[in-house]
């Protein structure tokens, strides 16, 4: 949380990007303590690694100084506070943290936990749901990543005015897809 606050205050964008990487790594640690080992792995590799690299590449192209904001922060702060209060108001009938009787754990999840090791033959339930039960969804995810890669290349790839910079950008995209 302190890292996130520092991101708000700092004006050197280089420091902001580095802090975003640290923030991502801390998030991965939290996922680990919440039993989501696969998610922690992905967040550490993709969130802290690739996203930070992409942002550093962008900073190299756009400069790393932020001008001081011209508008007063009162209106955004008000909007944000009101939204936060509404969200808090929405939690009052949510289940408590770690409650084993919460509705989310009672409906379909036991079925996957009990049947998927014998049905698919993989000990890791996350993998068997991702690759087998929801294989088409994962295929759709690959399509989304591919579309994003095509979009990035069509935005940047045809620029011939600055050949050396454009090369570094396209090589980064390949590592992403």
């Amino acid at each position: 949380m302190a890292t996130a606050l520092a991101v708000v205050r700092l004006r050197s964008l280089f420091a902001v990007v580095m802090l975003a990487g640290i923030y991502s790594l801390v998030t991965a640690g939290i996922f680990l303590t919440l039993d989501a080992v696969d998610v922690a792995f992905t967040e550490a590799a993709v969130g802290a690694g690739i996203a930070t690299m992409l942002m550093l590449g962008t900073l190299a192209l756009t400069g790393h100084k932020q001008t001081p904001p011209r508008h007063s922060p009162v209106l955004p702060l008000m909007v944000v506070t009101i939204t936060g209060v509404v969200l808090l108001w929405g939690t009052h009938d949510m289940p408590r943290f770690g409650d084993p009787d919460a509705p989310i754990h009672r409906h379909v999840a036991p079925r996957y936990i009990e049947e998927s090791p014998t049905e698919i033959g993989l000990p890791n339930m996350v993998t068997s749901v991702l690759a087998s039960y929801r294989g088409f969804d994962t295929l759709g995810e690959v399509v989304v990543v591919f579309t994003a890669g095509v979009g990035v290349l069509s935005l940047l790839g045809f620029r011939r005015r600055r050949p050396p910079r454009q090369d570094s950008e396209s090589s980064k995209e390949e590592s992403d897809g």
């Binding site: 969130g47 690739i50 992409l54 996350v126 995810e141 989304v144 990035v152 935005l155």
Partner: peptide, 16 residues
């Protein structure tokens, strides 16, 4: 897991 990967894809597009 799916959302993280898609999130990075959108981040890349935004940065482009």
């Amino acid at each position: 897991l799916t959302a993280i990967v898609v999130g990075v894809a959108t981040t890349a597009l935004g940065l482009a």
